[in-house]
């Protein structure tokens, strides 16, 4: 992974030194900057240096921001983390009940409506949703701020207000995904014999749905939430750009535009690490969700 990222970056056109130096710079100035960044060495040598640093926990210095990449990521983490968590909680809270109800009233208006919504959720691009929401909620109704971000420590209420629209925007595709999978797996569980047993016991329908059907449908739902984290990372980039949130997604875009190799590498390593950890957690959760699964 690290090798692939490293090579891809060095092989794509674009010179970070030229970007740093600005439009009016002379060839000598650019060469000097290039040497100071270490970019005049061979790709093998650059990789060896970088790998040595990463293995000792040092992600290197950003070309553009002139600070440690690790520090940079640390600074930009809060907005992204807040946005991701908000989106996740919002999506699960909306999608799972929707999916269960759709499965329960299989073929009814809610079911058909949900299916139509999820086709929409998948196919409408995130930025379109974002601009539509800004236009409606912020500009027409004036309920929420258009864009920007306020740190939690500065003002709790403003922090919340600034996160609502981005979270809703980002959760669209997520709700579509989770609701579909919830509906399908609950529907499958509802056809099982133990549902008939539960009804034959005279249990109320909510109990049958939640404790018997949903509990048995939990593994695929957990899996799709894990897969969704990957989509979330992509979505964060667009959403943060549209709402001008100074998070990791925004940082990624800026770093790519500036050909800031160490920062891009650091970000990709960081996202990969998060992704692996989340999926490990999801895998471990299977044993908790289904007693038949043991590691």
């Amino acid at each position: 992974m690290a090798v692939l990222v490293f090579l891809l970056l060095r092989l794509t056109p674009g010179d970070p030194a030229a970007i740093l130096a600005g439009d009016a710079a002379t060839a000598e100035q650019i060469d000097r900057i290039r040497a100071s960044l270490g970019l005049d060495r061979s790709i093998e040598a650059q990789f060896a240096i970088w790998l040595g640093q990463v293995l000792t926990g040092d992600l290197g210095q950003s070309f553009y921001y002139r600070m440690g990449v690790a520090t940079l990521i640390g600074q930009r983490l809060e907005p992204t983390l807040a946005l991701a968590l908000f989106t996740l909680v919002l999506s699960v809270c909306v999608a799972v009940p929707l999916g269960v109800l759709a499965a329960w009233r299989h073929g009814g208006w809610l079911d058909r409506g949900l299916m139509a919504f999820s086709v929409g959720g998948f196919s409408v691009p995130t930025f379109v949703v974002a601009y539509l929401l800004i236009w409606l909620v912020s500009l027409k109704l004036g309920w929420l701020p258009v864009q920007g971000y306020v740190r939690f420590s500065e003002n709790h209420l403003l922090f919340l207000k600034h996160l609502i629209l981005p979270s809703i925007t980002l959760s669209f595709i997520y709700i579509a995904l989770i609701a579909r999978v919830t509906r399908a797996s609950v529907l499958e569980a509802l056809g099982e014999d133990y549902i008939r047993t539960a009804r034959a016991k005279g249990l109320p329908e909510t109990r049958v749905l939640l404790r018997h059907a949903l509990a048995n449908a939990a593994v695929p739902i957990a899996t799709v939430i894990g897969i969704g984290i990957a989509i979330l990372i992509g979505g964060v980039v667009v959403t943060e750009s549209v709402y001008a949130i100074p998070g990791l997604g925004r940082l990624t875009v800026d770093a790519v535009l500036a050909r800031d190799f160490p920062t891009i590498q650091g970000l990709i390593l960081f996202f990969s690490f998060v992704y692996v950890m989340v999926n490990l957690l999801i895998d471990l959760s299977y044993a908790f969700l289904d007693p038949r699964i043991r590691y």
Binding site: Y194, A198, A200, K201, G202, L203, A215, N216, D290, P291
Partner: peptide, 24 residues
């Protein structure tokens, strides 16, 4: 009917493996 099911009339099924909820 729900009151009567399980209380005044009860049922057992063919396949005891699938008739019981596997996660409870």
């Amino acid at each position: 009917l729900r009151e009567l099911r399980g209380a005044r009339m009860a049922m057992i099924f063919q396949e005891p493996m699938t008739a019981l909820n596997p996660v409870m």
